[in-house]
Design a protein around this nucleic acid. Structure first.
Lengths: 142, 142
DNA sequence: CAAGTAGTTGCAATTTAGTCGCATTTATTA
DNA sequence: TAATAAATGCGACTAAATTGCAACTACTTG
């Protein structure tokens, strides 16, 4: 899939949901396409510097794009929420305890939903999970 | 182990690390002993009501007690950090997406540290992990 | 067991992350 | 190209967390 097709697809998806294809939104998604790692709204604001998108707009956009299924909200360490492209395959994260660097881990082996667990925990259903590994990256280990 | 022995042990550990056994610290730990679930600083402030411990003190204390190894910081959903006693056995959490209720899950099956993962990820070591399941609790499912 | 002191606390001010209402602007549609 | 629903920017606002500092206190030592 080339880039123009991709953009057209996104615009389509937006339109189908009565969301406008504004520069703020396309720029935001573009950042995620290029920077292949989780970003907070603060990160986005920085990356979008030249576009000068207001933070309120960014918060509203990550929210609506998440609702629409283009972004996925994840919780790393630290105080802010992070987002990544929902089109990525299900994966987990390895976080450097020293510098915060994040690396994706493919190949999830977490299995849940077994009846035993539900019975013991007093829950009616389990719909997802989030797994983070912590460690020291090669750079910090030097 | 009875309660006095326990308190003595804690005071010892504090002393060994040049931390004083202040009412704020002992009270804080006492809350964790009795309320067997993860607590945010906000929760703590509330539980410690009669002691009237300042929030700045609480933030400083959870941090130092974590560094000392008595508390463990965990990341549930929401915007605040949560803590639990580090003496609890390793476990994970099941969080209700609707009401935020947290249930402990014993019996961790996550295995990491395999060389392949380290090689692929550009990390030198993996020292821990955190796993949360999301779902709907029986109460919210009604 | 009194005094010195390192460590701790409370307070107030500040930073950070996120939210909200509203007037203005813009992408879309017809 | 005009109508209009949706989006934006601005500014004010909230809550969580952090910091500097003067006052205080648990602990050590003599």
């Amino acid at each position: 899939m080339n880039c123009q097709q991709h953009t057209a697809e996104i615009k389509n998806k937006l339109r189908q949901n009565k969301l406008k294809a504004t520069p703020a939104r396309l720029g935001l998604l573009d950042v995620f396409e290029h920077v292949k790692k989780p970003l907070s709204v603060g990160d986005l604001a920085q990356k979008l510097g030249r576009l000068g998108v207001d933070k309120a707009t960014l918060y509203r956009n990550v929210e609506s794009l998440e609702a629409l299924g283009l972004l996925k909200k994840i919780r790393l360490s630290g105080r802010s929420e992070y987002y990544e492209l929902a089109s990525q395959t299900h994966h987990h994260h390895l976080i450097c305890k020293n510098c915060g660097r994040v690396s994706d881990i493919e190949g999830c082996k977490v299995v849940a939903n077994n009846k035993n667990l539900l019975k013991k925990s007093g829950f009616a259903e389990i719909s997802g999970h989030s797994l983070e590994f912590f460690g020291i990256c090669n750079n910090c280990a030097k």
